[in-house]
């Protein structure tokens, strides 16, 4: 991955291609975006920012829609509770 960047997902460094959305990074790292009210793992559904299933915590800010956000170097991403 020549023009990749490194972000942290649930505490572990992950290398992703430049321009990838955070939702894509989560999928590549095999991590659930969020845990539902009843404890199910969830990932993106609509891909266009309306379903809120791809919510993650980015740099401590919860409920960010990962399909709408492009990865930036050193971003800290966590599965949303």
């Amino acid at each position: 991955m020549p023009d990749g960047i490194t972000i942290t997902i649930n505490g572990a460094p992950v290398r992703v291609p430049a321009g990838a959305t955070v939702a894509v990074a989560m999928a590549m790292a095999g991590q659930a975006c969020r845990v539902s009210v009843k404890g199910e793992s969830r990932g993106p559904l609509c891909g266009m920012g309306i379903c809120f299933e791809c919510r993650v915590t980015i740099n401590g800010v919860s409920h960010c829609r990962s399909c709408q956000i492009v990865c930036e170097p050193a971003m800290d991403v966590r599965t949303d509770a």
Binding site: G19, A20, V24, G47, M48, C67
Partner: peptide
């Protein structure tokens, strides 16, 4: 499709 466009 949007996810693939987003790099998946």
């Amino acid at each position: 499709q949007a996810m693939v466009k987003g790099g998946l």
